[in-house]
Design a protein around this nucleic acid. Structure first.
Lengths: 337, 337
DNA sequence: AATTCTTGCTTCATCGATTGAGCAATTGCG
DNA sequence: CGCAATTGCTCAATCGATGAAGCAAGAATT
């Protein structure tokens, strides 16, 4: 049960009081034209320090002025280059608008600094709520929002300080792995461990999927090959590079692949077509993510489609009621193929 | 040479003056709680009428108050379900941020009413610039923006009242058509016209691509089959439906297809795999758009990738300088395959 | 006829940041 | 020493929308 406490935002007057100076001096210092207005750097430093201590954020719209709620809802999203985030954003916008909220979305390209900067910018626009999607450091964002009295939520990747809505990565990956293992056995005869490609070892989703991957192997009665767990990042180039390295080390490539996202799959497919490694005998693949064209590839690819409508329903349930029943909601993904 | 004139926005005081009443009455009427504040419907109607005449837009942030420039730049985009618009949005955001602008993006799902509503909302947030991407009625948006003294720009689909940056649809489609025609001749022997699927006959891009399609056929010395021009809309279902209808009418399907977007291609591919129509003998296809997985499909697909970086460079050149050298900039797309 | 209630407005203070005007204290100059 | 120039601030008005408080005129009630 998480409740959002409406704390009062720090103002230039508060800061002026704390610094024993005037609001205009604070203003001049904080918006950077203190030199032009001939404020001493002593005072400037003092004000800057106090502002930082207080977690001050510039109130961009003195207007939303007299409206206690801005009805602005911010979302941070890593990329627009895949169907998963695309549908999250599109549906998020529609659901926000349905509720009379104004969605502001920022694409942070998996850049941690940009995530923080974007969060601060949105707060200075007085957003009432913040949804951090696939954030690299969700807790940092939660912290910044909490300091401004703004509720926040994590989507896709969980945090520990705000309610989180994510896919059931463990169960999804376990089932996907099992399916690919079985298909592999049928196709090629004999039990053989899969290759895991893509994602970051440090992120929750990848580690949960790896856990499901391992448990599926154990249930299937075949040991995981530790050299074949390539959590090399999501980008196509990284996935292709990891495979290239593996090949350069003279490792045998297995007949079955677990690919951690369509983005990584893009790299895997490119590598395959460039090196012609698998030749005509395509590997059996499982992809933790969905794309309509991947479904049509002439390859054997099982897909797990994350249930975006169900995830966003949970997100807006929390926002609508202002409370989260559970700190972490895990939504079962959908199997395709 | 288009120059943006900074007109003063109409306020509730202007309206109060015009209506011979007070600003608070105007405010009450315009934000809908005039019944609660017991304003006569006579006055309410008068004020409403005058507000409409004056093209009044609510100033959502009285704050951006005292700053003549909000540094907010709005973008309207139809969908997030393909790489083209995805990369437009991602790059637009990055380029805006580079310039110290705050991008606000709204996805209007090709809904004309939502486009207008989104434009109005962005104006009430005091945006300085508006980019209408793939808008169904760009001129309407230009008009609304002009009334508020805000500069606007069209991207992807052109308008007649604001500078437009689009792909060279005619040249791209002509070349793509020629390539597919030739490939078809090589593959199947004999000259044969192609089938055109997807897009809306009413939009500029589709009609220009159709023009290129026709001219390519003429240059190739083969007549276009008028029953095989299916500008049925972009959505996958519409493309699939158009093919189903064609088949139901007992028409022969040609060996070559011109597909007007990856979105339509999704429907074409689905229809092909569901009906198994072409069987093993896949048609030769050309797609006016690009997707990494389409490139990997086991099919013969030529693609035309629209040059997003070049298009956005033009867009920001206009925004940076405040002037457009030409009313219409056509960017040559890139051939792949 | 006196009082209360209702109707239909207007007045005014307010939200938080910005900036022109103003002023005391110090320094410079003849 | 006296006056001007400079330095380093503070004061206070302002942007546009909102809504509580207030007020005059008429209707209803006693």
């Amino acid at each position: 049960m998480t409740r959002i406490k409406p704390t009062k935002r720090t103002t230039i007057y508060d800061l002026a009081h704390l610094a024993g100076t005037s609001a205009s001096a604070v203003s001049a210092v904080l918006n950077g034209n203190w030199k032009k207005r001939r404020i001493s750097s002593q005072l400037a430093e003092k004000i800057t320090r106090i502002a930082e201590e207080q977690g001050y954020a510039l109130n961009m719209q003195a207007s939303l002025l007299r409206r206690e709620k801005s009805k602005i809802i911010g979302m941070i999203v890593p990329k627009y280059d895949n169907r998963y985030f695309g549908s999250i954003v599109e549906m998020f916008e529609a659901m926000a608008r349905e509720r009379g909220l104004f969605p502001i979305i920022t694409c942070t390209r998996r850049d941690p600094d940009l995530e923080i900067e974007a969060a601060r910018t949105m707060l200075s626009y007085q957003c009432d709520w913040m949804v951090a999607t696939g954030a690299t450091d969700p807790d940092r964002i939660t912290e910044i929002c909490a300091a401004a009295g703004v509720g926040s939520l994590n989507l896709d990747l969980p945090g520990s300080r705000a309610p989180s809505v994510i896919s059931d990565n463990y169960a999804g990956a376990r089932e996907l792995t099992l399916r690919v293992l079985k298909k592999c056995e049928t196709r090629f005869g004999g039990k053989e461990p899969l290759l895991f490609v893509g994602g970051r070892g440090t992120d929750h989703n990848t580690s949960e999927r790896l856990r499901g991957f391992r448990d599926a192997h154990e249930a299937f009665g075949v040991p995981v090959d530790e050299h074949h767990l390539l959590a090399c990042g999501y980008a196509p180039d990284k996935a292709a590079g990891a495979l290239r390295d593996l090949q350069a080390r003279g490792e045998d490539l297995p007949h079955g692949l677990f690919v951690n996202s369509t983005i990584s799959l893009e790299g895997v497919m490119r590598w395959m077509s460039e090196t012609g490694h698998y030749g005509d005998r395509q590997p059996v693949m499982g992809c933790f993510d969905w794309d309509p064209f991947v479904a049509l590839l002439g390859h054997d690819i099982e897909m797990v489609r994350q249930d975006v409508p169900a995830m966003l329903k949970e997100v807006f349930d929390i926002i609508d009621t202002g409370t989260a029943k559970l700190p972490l909601v895990e939504i079962p993904p959908i199997f395709i193929g």
